[in-house]
Simulated scan of single mutants.
Amino acid sequence: MELTGKLAEAFNTQLTLELTAATVYRQLAVEMDVMSLSGIAGWFRAQAAEEIVHAEKFMTHMTDRDAHPTIGEQPAPQMNVKTVADAFAVSLAHERKVSEAIRELYRLAQTEGDIDSIPMLNWFIEEQVEEEATVSEILDRLKLVGDDGSGILRLDRELGTRQSAGE
């Protein structure tokens, strides 16, 4: 079934949002590098790589269905990050934005009767639940640690063990 109309446009918007998320995570990695937290910076870089994989899933789905993926304009990330908790708060806010966008795509696919998109969107819904839960857990741990430098360094070491997508 060819992907056309509102749903094709919405998928293009989503793939742009996924690439924007990658840029947000790249900037958060920079912010952590500036704070000399290379493990957390690596976690954010891995997250950025994962967001690119997500965008590619949308592109592949679209081309498989004779639609033309088009990357839209991406705004430069605007954030005020002074602490590790600030960085993860930015991350959680962005993940929630992406989650709602995926849910809107699901609703549109249902409205349009596009059952071919539902399996992929189900995967994304599950992925977003996991993404939000992971970032929320990190934020909870940061609240427990507070300003304790040794606790932040332990978290930095732990998060630095994450592998990038495809590794």
Rank of each mutant, 00 (worst) to 15 (best):
G5Y: 02
G5P: 07
K6P: 11
E9H: 01
E9Q: 10
E9P: 02
F11W: 07
T13D: 10
T13E: 13
Q14F: 07
L15H: 04
T16N: 14
T16R: 05
T16K: 05
T20C: 06
T23R: 08
T23E: 09
V24R: 13
Y25R: 00
R26N: 10
L28Y: 00
A29W: 01
V30Q: 08
E31F: 12
E31I: 08
E31W: 08
S36H: 05
L37A: 05
G39E: 03
I40C: 02
I40H: 00
A41C: 04
G42K: 15
G42M: 12
W43Y: 15
W43N: 07
R45A: 13
Q47Y: 00
A49M: 10
E50H: 12
V53F: 12
H54M: 08
A55W: 12
F58I: 11
T63Q: 13
D64F: 00
D66F: 10
A67P: 03
A67I: 13
H68M: 13
H68T: 15
G72H: 00
E73W: 06
E73H: 10
A76S: 15
A76T: 15
P77G: 01
P77C: 12
Q78V: 15
Q78A: 14
M79V: 07
N80Y: 05
K82G: 13
T83M: 12
V84P: 03
V84C: 02
A87K: 01
F88L: 01
L92A: 11
A93T: 13
H94N: 11
E95S: 01
R96Q: 14
V98F: 09
S99E: 07
R103W: 13
E104F: 04
E104M: 10
L108D: 00
T111G: 06
E112T: 08
G113E: 01
D116F: 11
M120P: 00
W123P: 07
F124H: 04
Q128Y: 09
E132Q: 06
A133N: 11
A133G: 03
V135L: 14
V135Q: 09
S136H: 00
I138E: 11
R141K: 15
L142W: 01
L142V: 04
K143F: 04
L144K: 03
V145E: 10
V145K: 02
G146V: 11
G146Y: 06
D147H: 11
D148Y: 08
G151R: 00
I152P: 08
L153G: 00
L155M: 15
D156K: 02
D156E: 01
R157S: 13
R157C: 09
E158W: 05
E158Q: 09
E158F: 12
E158L: 11
L159F: 03
G160V: 14
T161V: 10
T161W: 04
R162V: 05
R162N: 05
S164K: 10
S164I: 10
S164Y: 02
A165W: 14
G166L: 07
